[in-house]
């Protein structure tokens, strides 16, 4: 991790532009929801069709409705939203064995990030490991993780989480 932002703060490596990221999501998924997060600031305006929600659990609920309607949904959220939406994920997608791509920004990993993010930075990966969702790391897998996630979802009808780190996308 050698990158720094304009204020001299450490960032994870940039893996792709937000435009390339959004294009890959649009290629493999056809319905988008979530709750805005600054990591996805430049991605969100490029995603269509979208139905963003006030809370992450309702974003997951709406995505499940789209799944009933035959769509391949993708939900974007910051990691704190996992806490709000886990019951909806389990009680809808997991219970009915339907596929979902969750794109999650892992806020709070970096020492300079504000204190309200730090607990979630520490808990996100252990929580995801406890769920047995398939986790792909954007830092490691790059943009090809999106095609890989789509393939896993199509064959296994499961929940795949793509974990994005601060700096992986231009903000």
């Amino acid at each position: 991790m050698n990158r720094v932002d304009a204020k001299g703060r450490a960032l994870f490596d940039q893996i792709s532009s937000s435009r390339e990221f959004a294009a890959a999501l649009m290629k493999y998924f056809d319905w988008f929801s979530g709750v805005p997060d600054s990591v996805f600031k430049n991605v969100l305006p490029l995603l269509q069709p979208q139905q963003f929600a006030a809370r992450e659990n309702h974003a997951v609920g709406a995505a499940f409705g789209a799944r009933i309607g035959g769509k391949n949904p993708c939900v974007l959220m910051q990691n704190s939203g996992l806490g709000l939406s886990l019951d909806a994920i389990l009680g809808l997608f997991e219970l009915y064995r339907q596929g979902l791509l969750l794109v999650v920004s892992n806020r709070g990993e970096l020492a300079w990030e504000e204190i309200q993010h730090q607990d979630w930075g520490r808990l996100t990966l252990p929580l995801l490991n406890a769920t047995n969702f398939t986790v792909l790391d954007f830092q490691t897998h790059g943009v090809s993780a999106i095609a890989q996630a789509a393939d896993i979802i199509a064959t296994e009808q499961c929940i795949v989480v793509l974990l994005v780190h601060r700096g992986n996308l231009d903000e």
Partner: peptide
Amino acid sequence: SFYLLHGMGESLAVAIGLASSQPQL
């Protein structure tokens, strides 16, 4: 009919997602 067995408080969100994904339904 789609019977929700769990997802407490999510039925409106589910219905909105379904209706918006299938405008003719």
